[in-house]
Nucleic acid binder design. Structure first.
Length: 628
RNA sequence: GGGGUAGUAGCUCAGUUGGUUAGAGCGCCUGCCUGUCACGCAGGAGGCCGCGGGUUCAAGUCCCGUCUAUCCCGCCA
């Protein structure tokens, strides 16, 4: 079991060793560097590993020998001159093998910081397997965490030697194991599906792969195994899962990589409730097996509408409040024209959020909040600061009537020292603006130590009842909010023709501490309905539907079971489980924001020969051609 | 495509209003040291101040451009 405390990021950075794992006795050694205790005193042992640090005292020297399990102190004395001289040559990160005798340390010599700190190994024989050059950056976790990430990525093989990074890899491995154990126990089949799929230009940009055997034609790397897994349901597999590698050629973020891993799941003969229960069981098992944490199930649920309306985002972090109240009605007759106009504009909304104890924010902080609001389309950020005497300080409050003030006071429960922030715009935008401001306010409260956001508090939340369609202003048509295979909520099906926007989908997202870690839906399994969604609602031309999805519609004519599924972002999940700040920390060899592998130096140019075989020509685009 | 931040020794950083020979800690090298575990002590080496251009008597410092990393917006059905 791994121990992850509240402030575990800091603690983990300090601890130089991991807790002991089950003993294993590989090859050249008799023990790992985290195996020896008082019980083994007197035994002759052989250890192998990397030199963590060497402390030379002249006639005596110590070496901290490190392997992935931990650190053991090796003692060299000058009794054996040859051995002592040999040890003089040792440099940090060299790989050595030591045979010697386990000895108990004297009382004043015990190192309480090391699990092996009560003993040391007195060296009798030393083999230097590999002499290391001086590493380009310190491998000490505390220091290495600050090193430029590009350097760490270039020397990833060194970076991964650090206990922090090894721990992340191990959490990831254990989580995968727990997942397989659980899904296997529930009779799921692990099935691999192709990475080379066909191009489906709707949705995420894809990586294209030229086909040598089919000149001028291309595969696309799959964005997810969505269509294959639905075919597996038609094939009668009933329960499928896969730790699936997915590819999307979109711009990167701290939580996005061009290739990433999903826990991909699909089940037949289920409804949403079955899905929630099964997946809650999966999370429970993973958290228990890997972190020793007991999750409370069932997870709370929230509608998309409430998430937006109260938190301003479809993936609310429910570890803290700062929820919104709606004052659209209250300001319908206001003498504050900005609010009045929006309150009466049909889909306009006036939202307010009370931030306790933030009336002391600085001018700079206020400006940053305002810029955040403006970035998301706000004209400004209306506010009220309540000073210690309870007086409302604000440029707008003079426009408010007594009734309006009373409404604010009552519904926000305003106290001295509080800050109240407003957003006024079309409902969705008003919510989004305040949602972003909410997150910034939370950061300010954390900075003031008035709010604690513990990484070891796991607030899971199902967000449900998403709209099936969103109207795309640019394209002037409806687009699928999730993907076009999501089934409508049964009672909303009749609205498909009359009011597509009002149709709710049987879609669900699993949210953890403000991160979307999974999403899925009950799928459409009737060819007529699927065809209707493609052609009538999404208005994809018939020939395009046939070309792209013809085989699916065809398959659904041959006995398609009702089915549904979900996919979890495995990298994101592990990021949250380890308390890491970016998914790059839990991926062995991640890519930079420009999609480069700095260690192997990919991508590279191709040789003319390669290009010829693939029937591809590269052309220089001049600026004019580029502009077209 | 756009906005923010960063780039000075191997690493992390400081460098004032533009002004002498660019500094610190760690690391590295040499020597000393028998109980250290952030060992200690003494000495030493190490710099295209990201790159290119400009302003100036004078640029690490000011201006323009550019590259790289990172965070965010757009994008991610």
């Amino acid at each position: 079991m791994l121990f992850l405390s509240c402030a575990r990021r800091r603690h983990a950075a300090r601890s130089r060793t991991l807790p002991a794992t089950a003993a294993y006795c590989p090859m050249k050694r008799t023990h790992t560097c985290n195996a020896l205790r008082r019980d083994q005193v007197g035994q002759e042992v052989t250890l192998v590993g990397w030199v963590d640090v060497r402390r030379d005292h002249g006639g005596i020297q110590f070496i901290d020998l490190r392997d992935r399990e931990g650190i053991t102190q090796i003692l060299f004395t000058n009794e054996d001159a040859e051995l002592s001289q040999q040890a003089d040559r040792i440099r940090p990160e060299s790989v050595i093998e030591v045979t010697g005798t386990v000895r108990a340390r004297g009382e004043s010599e015990v190192n309480a910081k090391l699990p092996t700190g009560e003993i040391e190994v007195v060296a009798r024989q030393l083999t230097i397997h590999n002499v290391a050059e001086t590493p380009p950056f310190p491998l000490d976790d505390d220091k290495a965490n600050k090193v430029n990430e590009d350097l760490r990525l270039q020397y990833r093989f060194l970076d991964l030697r650090r206990p922090n990074m090894y721990r992340n890899l191990r959490v990831r491995s254990k989580a995968a194991k727990a997942m397989r154990d659980y899904l296997d126990s529930q009779e799921f089949l692990e099935i691999e599906t192709p990475s080379l799929f066909k191009s489906t230009p709707e949705g995420a940009r894809e990586f294209l792969v030229p086909s040598r055997l089919n000149p001028g034609k291309f595969y696309a790397l799959n964005q997810s195994p969505q269509q294959y897994k639905q075919m597996l349901m038609v094939a009668g597999v009933e329960r499928y899962y896969q730790l699936a590698r997915c590819f999307r050629d979109e711009d990167l973020r701290a939580d996005r990589q061009p290739e990433f891993t999903q826990i991909d799941i699909e089940m037949s003969f289920i409804d949403r409730e079955d899905m929630y229960a099964t997946m809650e069981g999966l999370m429970k098992r993973i958290w228990k097996d890997v972190l020793g944490v007991d999750l409370q199930t069932p997870f709370p649920r929230m509608s998309y509408f409430e998430a937006m309306n109260r938190y301003g985002v479809d993936k609310p972090d429910t570890r803290f409040g700062l929820t919104f109240e709606d004052f659209t009605e209250a300001f319908k007759n206001s003498s504050f024209k900005v609010f009045k106009t929006i309150a009466n504009s049909g889909d306009g909304a006036i939202k307010a959020m009370k931030v306790p104890e933030l009336a002391d924010l600085t001018q700079g902080e206020h400006r940053d909040l305002e810029n955040t609001a403006k970035n998301f389309g706000a004209k400004g950020l209306a506010f009220i600061r309540i000073d210690e005497s309870g007086e409302w300080k604000s440029p707008i409050v003079k426009f408010f009537s007594d009734e309006e003030k009373a409404a604010l006071q009552e519904r926000l429960d305003i106290q001295p020292g509080d800050l109240v922030l407003f957003s006024a715009a079309e409902w969705e935008r008003a919510c989004t603006i305040l949602g972003r401001v909410r997150l910034e306010c939370a950061k300010l409260l954390v900075k003031r130590e008035k709010l604690e956001l513990s990484a070891s508090q796991y607030n899971f939340l199902w967000v449900i009842e998403f709209p099936l369609m969103l109207h795309d202003e640019e394209q002037g048509r409806y687009v699928a909010a999730h993907h076009p295979f999501t089934a409508p909520v049964p009672e909303d099906v009749e609205l498909l023709d009359s009011d597509p926007k009002a149709v709710r989908g049987q879609h669900y997202d699993l949210v953890l501490n403000g991160w979307e870690i999974g999403g899925g839906s009950i799928r459409i399994h009737q060819p007529e309905l699927q065809k209707k969604v493609f052609e009538d609602v999404l208005q994809i031309p018939k020939d395009v539907v046939q070309e792209r999805f013809g085989y699916m519609l065809n398959a659904f004519r041959y006995g398609a079971p009702p089915h549904g599924g979900i996919a979890f972002g495995f990298d994101r999940m592990i990021t949250l489980m380890t308390g890491a700040t970016s998914i790059r920390e839990v991926i062995a060899f991640p890519k930079t924001q420009k999609g480069q592998d700095l260690m192997a130096d990919a991508p590279t140019t191709a040789t003319p020969r390669q290009l010829r075989d693939l029937h591809i020509e590269t052309v220089e685009l001049d600026e004019e051609a580029d502009a077209e």
